[in-house]
Design a protein around this nucleic acid. Structure first.
Lengths: 218, 218
DNA sequence: GTAATAAGTTAGAGAAATCTAACAAAATTT
DNA sequence: AAATTTTGTTAGATTTCTCTAACTTATTAC
């Protein structure tokens, strides 16, 4: 059994690898807000436990065992987020911090029941895929809204940044997953995009926002 | 903010005080499965934090502050148990261990939402009262089934022992809270009681069982 | 009321997870 | 290619929570 601390390292390794490919000590240190020497010594410990491939000065890599355990923690996190939004009627901007705690609960029945009550969901409220019972996760191929062309109509499939601030901003614009969005124009100067959707005839979205919105082409 | 460890000591102090009145180091040590010297040093720490009145060789006592904090943890525990049974359809014999973990979650909204969804319940699935938002708890005056007389009809209001084994035993006899039970006879020899309820015409319950069943007289 | 037992404390050590300071290796800049 | 910066490691200290061994105080038994 892994400690809560170890679980947090595994999860961070998994998430960073998914976002940026390679993981190094500095990156992990920044993400966990833990100083580098501490990270180094934890990597040695996780290496002993065959959860991480560790060699001095080399990039960090989860072993297959490490990937599976990390995937299962993230499964619990995302199932929980879905449960909090769907069954407990909390906002998608409020669920991350709670799920961050509940993901460490040790109780197979609890999470199986959640899964069942939710009807075996494939994605969480932010559009991230929920790993399967073996910790395996497959990302669909989405496009950033910022990479779309004028005239295209797309469906909002996921959000990259799940910070409460960003999600609250989306709330003020009435943007949710599944929304059909039409691209009306793109400003060459700052790459901001004007879109229409639902009751919104013309909403201007900055490039920073558009980079964080993942869409499916229709 | 108290650590998870401190919370467990507070809770145990609160629970033991409710069950047996006075708490001493040996008792607390046994309950927490932590050796006495460790308990002593934690009592000094909690005393520093004004959560416990501690004097060498004297019985242990929670301060008002300590009682409140313990009560709030137990509130979270019992709300969670109610949620797991009522909303997540888990058996009353399965919820203790999960609630034991979820009670440490730090998130006022999460528990407020639970409370709301449950319709502000007053008792948990085992009949124990849920402390209010100030950590205050009042036990109703119940009688043990073992103290009742032949001919009485009573309502099952709470169970004392919430071990999974005992609750599973009650399941096999189809006994649940709220059940109306009629006392048909009492065996002088071993104090076992024969009762009838629901479809059960004559069910013999040992004294050990009857001591653990709290009832309300009709 | 003394001896035996139980309960409680003190002292010192150890594991887990963290830190700072100092040094070493790798990458980047000029 | 040398200097600088960034990244990573080693060594040693600190905090929290735990333990065992040895001793002290309180309670119970005879």
């Amino acid at each position: 059994m892994n400690s809560l601390t170890e679980e947090n390292y595994l999860k961070a390794l998994f998430n960073i690898a998914n976002e940026t490919g390679e993981v190094n000590v500095a990156e992990l240190s920044k993400r966990l807000e833990i100083k580098m020497p501490t990270v180094t010594s934890m990597m040695k410990k996780l290496s002993e436990k065959k959860l991480v491939h560790y060699e001095s000065y080399k990039p960090l890599q989860l072993t297959d065992k490490g990937k599976k355990e990390a995937g299962l923690i993230i499964r619990k996190h995302r199932l929980t987020e879905m449960f909090l939004v769907d069954k407990m009627k909390l906002g998608w901007e409020d669920v991350h911090d709670i799920a961050e705690q509940i993901e460490h609960i040790q109780s197979p029945v609890f999470f199986e029941k959640m899964d069942e009550l939710l009807g075996y969901p494939k994605v969480d409220p932010h559009g991230s895929p929920i790993p399967d019972k073996n910790g395996k996760v497959v990302w669909k191929e989405y496009n950033k809204l910022s990479d779309c062309k004028v005239g295209e109509t797309v469906k909002l499939a996921a959000v990259i940044n799940t910070s409460s601030g960003f999600l609250k901003f989306l709330n003020t614009r009435e943007m949710r997953l599944g929304l059909k969005i039409k691209i009306k124009s793109i400003e060459a100067f700052d790459k901001s995009i004007t879109v229409s959707y639902g009751k919104h005839q013309a909403e201007a979205l900055s490039n920073i926002v558009c980079e964080r919105l993942l869409v499916e082409k229709q």
